[in-house]
């Protein structure tokens, strides 16, 4: 299996869509889609994410890998497929600024890992809270690039508390990587260093909200 993961990962790093799809197609008849996703797609994406963290791979590769995996997974496991994970309702958003790359990567990686989630796109605090309430979101992933946007999460957390919402907040983005105490300062429940970490962080939080 490791050879398959290596080949798949190499195809992703080379942005070779056709080869990546062929590798998955070759295994779809012998593996259950969820098992294929967890054993090949998720493992490859996690290794690429770790490689970005240690400086081996570039963000452009992380992004393109996520996009390719999202496309591949949609072909073997459509969004409405009952085999998609039984999960609490989740959403992802960018708070305040127009830098959406991080959000797009995490969205792709979670979907490529078999999760379903709503994409709130770019929102301000009040709009975000209203949508969380309306959609009964249990896990909210917030991506930011700018420090002032990160600090606004304090306000989100306060409103959640004041209104009795038990929605868990997962944060990610440059300010949190540059200051490892910031996620706790803003009141988040978890922080992802890399996009691929979101998969395991969501798994852990799912136990708290189920």
């Amino acid at each position: 299996m490791m050879n398959v993961v290596n080949d798949f990962m190499q195809a992703l790093l080379n942005v070779d869509r056709l080869l990546a799809k062929k590798i998955i197609d070759d295994h779809v008849s012998i593996m259950h889609p969820i098992q294929l996703i967890e054993d090949i797609v998720v493992v490859a994406l996690e290794r690429i994410g770790t490689g970005w963290q240690d400086g081996t791979y570039a963000l452009s590769q992380v992004y393109m890998s996520g996009r390719i995996c999202e496309e591949v997974v949609d072909t073997i496991l459509p969004p409405s497929d009952p085999d998609r994970k039984d999960q609490p309702k989740m959403a992802i958003c960018v708070l305040s600024d127009h830098h959406k790359l991080g959000k797009t990567i995490v969205y792709s990686l979670l979907r490529a890992s078999g999760f379903e989630l709503l994409d709130f796109d770019i929102v301000e605090v009040n709009d975000m809270v209203a949508r969380v309430k309306e959609q009964k979101i249990k896990i909210l992933l917030i991506s930011v690039l700018m420090l002032p946007s990160a600090l606004k999460i304090k306000k989100v957390k306060k409103i959640f508390k004041d209104e009795g919402l038990d929605t868990k907040i997962i944060v990610g983005g440059a300010p949190f990587r540059f200051d490892d105490q910031l996620w706790q300062e803003v009141g988040a429940d978890a922080m992802c260093e890399t996009a691929s970490e979101a998969v395991s962080v969501v798994h852990n939080l799912m136990e708290c909200v189920s």
Partner: peptide, 15 residues
């Protein structure tokens, strides 16, 4: 171009 067209679309443009 990160600001001209957005980071995600710019990476796609490059590739």
């Amino acid at each position: 171009p990160i600001m001209q067209m957005g980071f995600d679309k710019y990476i796609e443009l490059m590739y």
